[in-house]
């Protein structure tokens, strides 16, 4: 058998990049749980976790250990394989999106240019959509395999919610694509480095995208699938130990990834606003500064996610559907038509 000759250094650099990106998203998601508790505490005029380590910094570790050491219960009336597959899928789809995100510009190691993006594929943004649309399977399969009415209701709610909001999200995306004329995330960032950020051209599109991102991540005010006062625990009622942890954790990874996507699409990704950084730094420093800039933008988005969660109460289910189908979709369609007309007129 003759396999194609593959560039060993290429494989190695991608492998290292994948490991770094995955572990970085895990650690960031871990500390997002901590940040959520702190933000909640500040908004409610409390102190929040402050016992484990300095300023409570070790709290996420303690939480993780606690989840690991809990007894693991798989109900004997559930279908076992699917019961385990559910949280595994939720975790996997949450992490898969990070493959097409440009985390920074190139760095140079021993004369070799290494791009800080795992895969710059032609259809980057569509790939993101594909993975997002698969994200619901973890919840649906897990909820069905639990063989519990509350779980099933939670799963069904998640499915219909995500399908409904995907439509508005897709249409708001089309109007962005009308402006950029490109599906590759890297190209979008490069375009935004010269000239204004996309949010200037697409304020309404960004707003619709933001609301839909909240719904896709199952965050309050759209956390109907796990509405505890109606459905006990929603889709994860039967889950315990680290499987529950996977479900909860994948929500935070989703939040992180969708913040990155929004920063990349609408706020210039790893570009630093207002200055021409390419003239100021050498290649490697530039890449690192770019990653830091992206992370600051992401942190702001994550804070907005939390701010909304601890400020706005949950919707009723019919209000949720009304918002998705009767308000967001017509708005997105209007936005698309207006963008199309304007770009024709400007040409």
């Amino acid at each position: 058998m003759m396999l194609q000759i593959i560039d060993l250094a290429f494989i190695l650099e991608k492998l290292i990049l994948i490991v770094v990106v995955i572990s970085a998203s895990l650690v960031i998601a871990m500390y997002t749980t901590f940040a959520e508790r702190k933000v909640a505490a500040i908004l409610q005029d409390r102190r929040g976790p402050n016992r484990a380590g300095p300023f409570g910094m070790l709290q996420p570790l303690a939480d993780g250990l606690k989840l690991f050491f809990k007894e693991e219960i798989i109900p004997d009336f559930s279908s076992k394989f699917l019961f385990i597959l559910g949280p595994a899928l939720a975790m996997m789809t949450a992490m898969m999106t990070s493959a097409v995100i440009p985390w920074g510009d190139v760095i140079e190691i021993a004369g070799r240019k290494v791009s800080l993006q795992i895969a710059d594929i032609d259809v980057g943004i569509l790939y993101v959509f594909g993975v997002v649309s698969l994200g619901v399977y973890g919840i649906m399969i897990g909820s069905w395999a639990s063989n519990n009415k509350f779980s099933l209701l939670g799963g069904l709610r998640a499915a219909s919610q995500i399908i409904s909001y995907e439509l508005a999200m897709g249409i708001s995306m089309i109007s962005l694509l009308l402006i950029t004329g490109n599906l590759s995330l890297k190209q979008m960032v490069l375009q935004q480095q010269h000239g204004f950020y996309n949010v200037v051209y697409q304020p309404l599109g960004f707003l619709i995208f933001l609301i839909c991102a909240f719904a896709e991540c199952n965050r309050t005010p759209f956390d109907l699938p796990e509405a505890e006062n109606e459905l006990i625990g929603g889709y994860h009622t039967e889950y315990s130990s680290m499987k529950l942890g996977f479900f909860l954790f994948s929500e935070y990874i989703n939040m992180f990834v969708s913040s990155v996507i929004m920063s990349t699409l609408f706020f210039g990704g790893y570009d630093i606003p207002f200055i021409n950084e390419a003239a100021m730094f050498s290649t490697n420093v530039l890449a690192i500064v770019g990653v830091v800039a992206l992370m600051i933008k992401v942190a702001i988005f994550i804070f907005i996610f939390m701010w909304v969660r601890w400020t706005i109460p949950r919707f009723r289910y019919d209000q949720l559907m009304h918002l998705g189908w009767r308000i967001l979709i017509p708005l997105a369609l209007f936005n698309m038509l207006a963008t199309g007309a304007l770009s024709l007129w400007m040409k």
Binding site: L126, F129, V132, S133, L134, V136, M140, A159, E166
Partner: peptide, 14 residues
Amino acid sequence: IIVYAGAIMVLFLF
């Protein structure tokens, strides 16, 4: 993937 696996099959499963 988006249309069949992501939307139609979710509806079927639903």
